[in-house]
Simulated assay, not measured.
Amino acid sequence: MTAEQITAERTAAERSEAAARRAGVEVRELREIADFEAVAALFDTIWKAPPTAVPITVELMIAFAHSGNYVAGAFEGERLAGASIGFLAGPPGTTLHSHVTGAAVGRGIGFALKLHQRAWALAQGLTRITWTYDPLVRRNAHFNITKLGARPEAYLPSFYGRMEDAVNAGDESDRLLAVWPVAGPRVAAACACDVPEPAPAPADAVVALGERDDRPVEGRGDGRVLLVATPRDVETLRRARPATAAAWRRAVRASLGGLLDDGARVTGFTAAGEYIVERS
């Protein structure tokens, strides 16, 4: 291991510990069945999934932890307040795929878990962490792109098929694949700043997908830099106006998915809830 790698690993661990202190938690890897059962109970309060559609089972967490994968929890004293589970992915020796993370929103616990995950990955000699998220959920896009410095690299239509939990039921499970190069300068800078500012919309950007009266509006697709809007609160739309939520799903799939399929790349996410997409 080089001196630069040792320094990066040490700095990542320090930032992880600092983020945990700010959130008022201790983040640690889990080994005991009682801890895995507490994760299952916590996730049930978040997703309210039927028994046949839980995010992850206790048995699978045990197997992951036993075989050297990532299973960690954030504790407030003795109470579990968040957890994250990931598994080693290909190419071998390079990637951790973060399968599921759940925590209270707005308290910094999710940020602390991700920084712990990053420090763990660097200590294992890994170069990146990947995960999927719903492209319509603004707070997740802001968290992943702005706060963590990750970048979506692929649009995955109906990735998980039909989902029956309280968060996703009634909608298709389109996902973006986020890629987090754990030693990259953008990621290191994001992890050093607790609340980075959202990216401003470039002056030359054109609107590929806009919003009017909470509905998607198709724009132009001929710019080098394009903006793709998202709904203000898709989870409320799914419950109150499912047809509008479905319209947003189709519109973002066609616009953002089409651009990524054509080789464009996401470079930021604005305060107004727009993906900034640039053609090469």
Rank of each mutant, 00 (worst) to 15 (best):
Q5H: 14
T7H: 11
A8F: 04
A12P: 00
R15W: 07
A19M: 04
R21P: 02
A23F: 09
V25Q: 02
E26C: 12
E26F: 06
L30D: 05
E32K: 11
D35W: 10
D35K: 03
V39K: 01
F43P: 09
T45W: 12
A49Y: 02
A49E: 09
P51M: 03
T52G: 11
T57G: 13
V58S: 07
M61H: 02
F64G: 01
N69H: 15
G73H: 04
A74G: 06
F87I: 06
A89G: 14
P92N: 09
G93T: 03
L96W: 01
V105E: 13
G110E: 01
L115Y: 10
H116Q: 09
A123I: 03
A123Q: 15
G125M: 07
T127P: 00
I129E: 08
D134C: 08
R138Q: 14
K147H: 09
E153I: 15
E153G: 15
P157K: 04
P157Q: 04
S158T: 14
V167W: 06
A169H: 13
D174W: 05
V182M: 06
P185G: 01
A190W: 03
C193M: 10
D194A: 15
D194N: 07
P200T: 03
A201C: 11
P202Q: 08
D204C: 08
R212H: 12
D214C: 12
R215W: 15
G221W: 00
D222V: 05
E235L: 11
A240I: 07
P242A: 02
A246V: 10
V252E: 10
S255K: 04
L259V: 07
D262I: 04
R265T: 15
A272V: 05
E274P: 06
V277H: 08
V277Q: 04
E278C: 12
R279F: 04
